[in-house]
Every structure is written in structure tokens, then in C-alpha cells.
Design a protein around this nucleic acid. Sequence first.
DNA 1: CCGCCAGCCTGAAGGC
DNA 2: TGCCTTCAGGCTGGCG
Length: 265
Amino acid sequence: MPELPEVESIRLGLEPVVKGCRIERISVNVPRMLIKGDPADLTGKYFTTIDRRGKYLQIMTDSDLSLHVHLRMSGTLLWREPDEELPDFARIIVYLDKGKLVFRDVRTLGNIWIAGRNFTPWRKLGVEPFSEDLTAEYLKNKLIKRSIPIKVALLDQSVIAGIGNIYASEILFDCGINPRKAASGLSKPKLNLIIASTRKILSDAIHHNGTTLKDFRLSNGRDGNFTDFLRVYRKLDVPCCNCNTPIKRIVQSQRSTYFCPVCQK
DNA sequence: CCGCCAGCCTGAAGGC
DNA sequence: TGCCTTCAGGCTGGCG
């Protein structure tokens, strides 16, 4: 579910709410979602800021320990006032002095880690989309020996961190590149187009609080609004907004890809 | 090292 | 109504 814009929208909404809250206790209702650490170690600590790296969140405390979160497919973080009831599918609840931070996750694929500030739950993440380190030169070197299509490369978190299945299709439509094009064969000008579209689509999506298809909610319970601005994702047979050609769906690496066969040659 | 694919889970939706 | 299949925003581990 949540890709970079959704995770960033959660971060922006949640940070001012949880900052300064004291952790009373943590209830882990689905034990396998906790990968590392002991929740009891966070008791008495205060939340400070929230960082994001790719699709990972790190909720910092006034100690060295942090709460690291990955929402996977159907997770979200919700805020509840002390007198408010828990939502359905509340898998992990952080009871705070001023309210509750709830990890809601229908499919229970999400994970948390309780570990030091410098702990990284990811194996390897590529550059951030908005970092100046993301250049055509960087992509060229990363993709030179890859036989995969560009759509699959955009999903590879060790290339660029944060792009998921919705935005990979939207980005390639925006820059008019066919998702089946070999990643290694793209010229630097084409790579620069991809970089520009990546930044444009992701920042627009953040501006609209992300995309809600099914499970995603902002921390205040509301839906993301970028859903209304999707141009190809889940638009099978819908006329292309540029040329009226029906949007096509193909499967790449076991995931759906949507594109316009005319605009994306 | 690279690419492929099953597996992890639950619930909604569609076909019969 | 109910049963079965398919599909879903992500990532890991094992295999060739």
C-alpha cells in the first residue's frame, strides 16, 4: 500500500501530534509483526521527531531507542484521543499520556523494530528521490548491468528508495517511456526525464496527501486525495487523457503495470 | 551477482 | 446463500 507519498503524509501529520508524548506501554497484538527489540524498553520515553527513509519511518525518542516502522501493503498509523475507541484491525497500540498511536494493518504484513537511533531495518536502500545524489549518472551506473525492464527497476528499492507500484506506472506515463524498455538501454536524457517525472509525481502526490485505494488512511483517519489525479494506474480500458487510446495492463515481475501504448512508445 | 518466484497474510469482489 | 478463485499499495529468502 503505502509508497513514499503516503508514508511522508503520515509522517507530516503525525509528528506534531506525537511529539512530546510520554510512552506508557505498548500492546503488540500480533507478535510476529515485532521483528526486533523489547517494547517495555520504551516505557517512560518521550517521542521527539519522525524521520523517513524510503518507505521506512523512524519515530525518535529522547533516548537512543527509536521505533522503526514499515507499513508494507495494508498498514497505516492512526492517532486516537484517550477516550476514543480503537479502530478495527488495531495490531499494535502505543499508549501515550495524551492519546494512542495505533498501527492498523488488515493483512498484518507490517513490521516494527525497537532499536538504536542508527539501526537500519533495511538491507540496502538507494538514493532518496529528492536528493541531489539522484542523477542520470547515478542511474546509469546502477542500471548498466541490469537486464530488467525500467518499470521493474523503478520498484527496486536499492536503485531509488520509495517508489512503489502505483507511482512507477504514473511516472513512466508522465515521461512517455514504455515500461518494457530495458533499464540498461536508456540514454542519459531519458534518465533525466525519469528523474524529473519522479520528483514531479511524488511531490504532487505528497501535496495531495497520497493515494487511497483501499486501506490507506492519514493519521487523522482521512483519505489521501491523489487518487483523483491518477492517470493510468487501475485505468484499464479507460481512454488515455492525452490521446484517447485505451489504457493497457500488463504483468511485470508479478505486478500490474498500466500504460498508454501510444504515448509510451 | 542477477533474475525469478513462492511465500507471508486478510478481506473484498466476482463467477458459478 | 455459499463456495471457490483472484487480486491487492511490499519485501524477503531460496533457487538456478
